[in-house]
């Protein structure tokens, strides 16, 4: 009997965050700036096969830094982490279910696809006016 009279919802989680100096925030900020620079640099290379993957990896790293340190998820054990991880998991479920359809659907059931890549081969640089070769015949 004795232990159940303790408020069960109180003992588990001290609500106060750990106190530490502001230095960590500046480090995270510098890392975020650096990663932005990195993605800006690699993004302009237009790496043909893994450009998207690289951009997403960098973005996820940046997001992780923000979530873990600016938003303090690093210190918050338990349910807030579970909430966040579940959320991301369900976003991925939605993405996979939908892409699983579009990527395996019969060509004729898709909305009109764009012209073959050869007609769009000339890609202008950023800010440059696109060539007229990009027009649909």
């Amino acid at each position: 009997m004795a232990d159940i009279t303790k408020n069960v919802t109180d003992s588990h989680h001290p609500a106060d965050l750990e106190h530490h100096g502001a230095g960590a925030y500046y480090l995270v900020w510098i890392a975020l700036l650096a990663l932005t620079g990195l993605t800006w640099w690699t993004g302009q290379m237009h790496l043909p096969n893994f450009g998207l993957a690289l951009a997403l990896i960098i973005a996820t790293t940046k997001a992780a830094l923000v979530v873990l340190f600016f938003m303090h998820l690093w210190e918050q054990k338990g349910v807030n982490r579970v909430t966040f991880v579940c959320t991301i998991a369900f976003v991925i479920v939605m993405l996979l279910g939908t892409l699983g359809d579009v990527t395996t659907r019969l060509e004729t059931l898709l909305p009109k696809r764009e012209a073959p890549a050869s007609e769009l081969s000339h890609m202008p640089k950023h800010g440059e006016a696109p060539a007229h070769g990009a027009q649909h015949p």
Partner: peptide, 19 residues
């Protein structure tokens, strides 16, 4: 998700427009 679907369908155009 909408973005992913249309980027899959129109990869070249999306690259062009992005630039």
């Amino acid at each position: 998700v909408s973005y992913a679907v249309y980027r899959y369908l129109y990869p070249q155009t999306f690259a062009l427009c992005s630039r």
